[in-house]
Nucleic acid binder design. Structure first.
Lengths: 194, 194, 194, 194
DNA sequence: AATGAATGAGATTTCATTCAT
DNA sequence: TATGAATGAAATCTCATTCAT
């Protein structure tokens, strides 16, 4: 009987899932609770997502995309000078994490959605950074001994770890301090030549 | 029917848990499987640990302790010069992770450890690093604008993230490359003065 | 695989629980057996009741309500004279116990009902009796030294104990004998004045 | 190795069991806890009792025997007049329950030790009362229509129920009030002739 | 006789998923 | 499309009991 054509069922499920995953952790949330929080029946959940992890993956994919867009936008607006680029990217990441704390935590937090889900996500994200480092090496502005992939991966682990720590306890450091530290320790700065 | 007076039930449970947690992830392992793998009855599990997470915590505590000892040992054997100290510590961490890959993954891996259980662990671990940075600042050998706690935390996130990535795919980089990168990006190097 | 849109799952669980509790006693019955007896999956049990004791409580509450209704009905139909009232109530209780033997046993039987769960139930039930005794005392028709609450409680313990004994072995005494004894030993008779 | 010849292992187990059964109810207590409370190993429990219910039965048997002795003693000291006998017996029961509250509760309380354990216990106890009533009928001092077995059983249910209620909340009535009520409602009084 | 680690059947409870309506 | 009662595999945890020492 009940078929009231819910307009935004999917969005409501995503929002409910995001909120619950962030609060309780991926494994502590069940689909019935997500559906209830979205004020939908459990059947509606399965009409929109094949299973619980599909919802999580969707949240993470959207978050990663949005963060990437924010970085692109920010670096486009910045100068061409490496430090400006690095800083713009860090500022964008910190600002994004601040305004989308739940999504950031669910996507990058100390938890996982089935072993492999994460690795690809992060290594994918590290490619632009690695490419940037390679360009700096080609231009003779970065220590040629540095392994760009390794360094890019190291930087992103640092960025994520630092931002998560800061989100959990924002009092310990200001936003600017976080950005400064990230920039300082970014390979493009830390291993720059000249 | 009990009978066989097991010699080292607790050790066998720890070993079985470590192996299974590393392979499948904390949430995909159950106490029955751990007990079976240890060739013990399920009741024996609960005679030794109140629940699954207690076993996990014990594994993590032992790992953190062992890693700390390895670092202390290594830095004691190294020179007093900051770079030597930093390198010795990184070498120790990488070697430890290599020889205790499962324990390293279970303890530091991107995996739920009961959410909050982890934060304290890592921030505790970052104290020696932060103290080292403070000493360098006091000696005028490190940029005084750097926040030592923030930088220490950032470095550890980087170290852990890089090592985990390397453990998952050791072909991408050699052990020396990893160590070099860690040393290069360590705050004591990256922001050194003079 | 769900499927068969059960019509009256809750009623069937109540019936199955009643039957099994009466036969084996509360602690010797488990939720799996109740669900199986009701031809339902165990999950269905927990969809309707939070746990085994909630089912038991529901059975007891319904039984107490039904018995109270039976008494009210019976005493309304009886004359206003105390003995008639007392007899009508006893007849109603005995008839109820006879036609709902399982429910009577489960509700009043010498069996754990979660220790304290029972006390209130019985003391609540004893209030009408106590009030009746007070009225008789006010009318000078009952020994004023009798403590009405104590006497009411004593009578109900007697009524329940006697009926349970009779239910277990109805041959030892006829229904009328039971009623006569109850009336005889009811405080309103035993301590009547004039 | 450990064989320190425990002097009173059995007594300690009985005391521990009594205390725990009274506090938590028969089904909520396990043998390991009883042994621990008695400061004995679990093996020692099974060296003295075949199983948990044997311990309970022993406690109940001892309690019933002690109560019977107390009644015998008390009625022997009383006059031969029926009311004195009845009162002496009630006083003895109330005093016994007061000074052995745990044992009284464990033996007569609203709980059971496996369905059948109790019935025999109580019907056994009701025989002396029934015999007394028969003697009164033979002497023409008690209504000959009263069924002595039924009345005896009814009285004992009342006595036990009233005393248990009083033990749980001794403030509601004094010891004398309880005794008076019991005597008042005892068949020998309630249905006496002449 | 006393010990207590070990046992494992069994009870409780959860929750991802289905499907008739 | 939406519903939500029903499902049942699977996980957690308990505890009476055994037996080598």
């Amino acid at each position: 009987m009940p078929r009231p054509r819910i307009e935004d069922a999917e969005d409501r499920l995503l929002a409910a899932g995001l909120n619950l995953f962030a609060r309780r952790g991926t494994e502590r949330v069940n689909t019935n609770t997500i559906a209830k929080r979205a004020r939908l029946a459990i059947g509606t959940f399965y009409a929109h997502f094949p299973d619980k992890h599909a919802l999580l993956r969707e949240i993470q994919m959207r978050t990663i995309g949005a963060l990437r867009n924010a970085r692109v936008e920010a670096t486009r607006g910045a100068g061409t000078n490496p430090e400006e680029q690095v800083r713009a990217s860090a500022v964008a990441a910190v600002a994004f994490a601040e305004s989308h704390a739940e999504a950031y935590r669910v996507t990058f937090g100390r938890e996982r959605a089935g072993a492999a889900a994460h690795g690809p996500v992060v290594s994918e994200s590290s490619r632009p950074t690695a490419d940037g480092l390679r360009r700096l090496q080609a231009a003779g502005r970065l220590d040629p001994d540095l392994d760009p992939d390794l360094a890019a991966r190291a930087y992103l682990a640092m960025e994520v770890g630092t931002i998560l720590w800061w989100l959990d306890d924002p009092v310990r450091a200001g936003r600017e301090g976080v950005v400064d530290t990230l920039v300082r320790l970014h390979p493009a700065q830390a291993a720059r030549v000249g």
